[in-house]
């Protein structure tokens, strides 16, 4: 996930281009830290590829190789099933968050209606409420709707986002009102304007928001644990927890599950690294 937004022009000899011994020193330091950062990932992969009786025999040495444990985690560990559940929930939440924030952001930026400032304040206030506070009541709410162990139970509380609304509103505010007025005179309704003018404008932000929504839903841990009591309905995260707690004595199986659970996100992040940086920095910059 390299951040490939390098400074535009790099002179061949620069004050910030270490050379000679200093470059060597820096490489050694970089290599050393890279080794430390990769160490847990390395031991995990090594264990996932070893048969059970070999795992504790020199855990740093790779091999003998086998794919059986990965296969086992996929089928008997049900990782395949959990991945599907996670995928469905994350996609549903992402699509809904994008749609609901687009609509709300457009309303806040382009429409005049009484109580707009107050309502926007209410939206922003929800950002201050940590998930952990609402989960107690939400668990009961989902239970009383009969939605425990269902996709709608996993997804429902997260179908809208004040963060996304705020993010998109900031971009919509840069659209000149005259443009909207001109479109209105030409008979273009709000939805038409949203689709043909506003959405193309926010496309980069939309991509960042979608990735952010997908990742945060995929990585949810506490909520799926509270909502899921049947093994088949686990997401990858709560499924991993189950796998770990029921196979304490088989670390290679648990590590194989961990590898399987991690791969999709690694792939997603490599493909969408640009959106990731945008998404993560969206909250950090002013404006």
């Amino acid at each position: 996930m390299a951040t490939d937004t390098r400074a535009a022009a790099i002179p061949a000899v620069g004050f910030d281009r270490p050379r000679g011994w200093r470059a060597l020193g820096r490489y050694s330091l970089l290599l050393f830290v890279a080794f430390l950062v990769l160490f847990p990932i390395y031991t995990t992969i090594v264990a996932a590829l070893k048969p059970g009786n070999e795992v504790l025999n020199d855990p740093l040495r790779p091999g003998p190789f086998t794919l059986d444990v990965l296969r086992d985690a996929w089928s008997t560990g049900r990782l395949g099933r959990y991945l599907l559940n996670s995928f469905v929930v994350a996609i549903v939440v992402t699509v809904c968050q994008v749609v609901t924030s687009l609509l709300a952001a457009y309303a806040f930026a382009m429409l005049d209606f009484p109580g707009r400032t107050l309502l926007f304040g209410v939206f922003l206030a929800t950002l201050l409420v940590p998930l952990e506070v609402t989960l107690v009541v939400n668990r009961r709410l989902i239970d009383s709707l009969g939605w425990l162990n269902t996709y709608q139970g996993l997804a429902a509380p997260f179908l809208a986002t004040a963060f996304g609304t705020f993010l998109l509103r900031q971009v919509f505010l840069t659209l000149p009102r005259d443009l909207r007025d001109a479109a209105a005179i030409d008979g273009v309704g709000h939805l038409g304007f949203l689709r043909h003018v506003a959405i193309p404008l926010v496309r980069p932000t939309l991509g960042a928001l979608a990735l952010f929504s997908f990742l945060s839903t995929w990585n949810q841990y506490l909520w799926p644990n509270l909502i899921t009591t049947e093994a088949d309905k686990n997401t990858v995260q709560s499924g991993l927890r189950l796998l770990a707690s029921t196979n304490l004595d088989e670390p290679n199986l648990v590590m194989a599950g961990t590898v399987i659970a991690a791969i999709p996100i690694f792939v997603v992040l490599i493909v969408f690294q640009r959106q990731l940086v945008r998404g993560l920095t969206a909250g950090a910059v002013k404006g």
């Binding site: 847990p40 995990t44 995929w218 991993l240 961990t258 690694f266």
Partner: peptide, 25 residues
């Protein structure tokens, strides 16, 4: 760039994935 990729990589681990890796360590 390679080092940047390595240092960014842990962003891809969920809390369950990261914790289980460390539990095994």
């Amino acid at each position: 760039g390679v080092f940047r990729t390595v240092f960014s990589s842990t962003v891809a681990t969920s809390v369950a994935v990261a914790s289980l890796m460390w539990l095994f360590l």
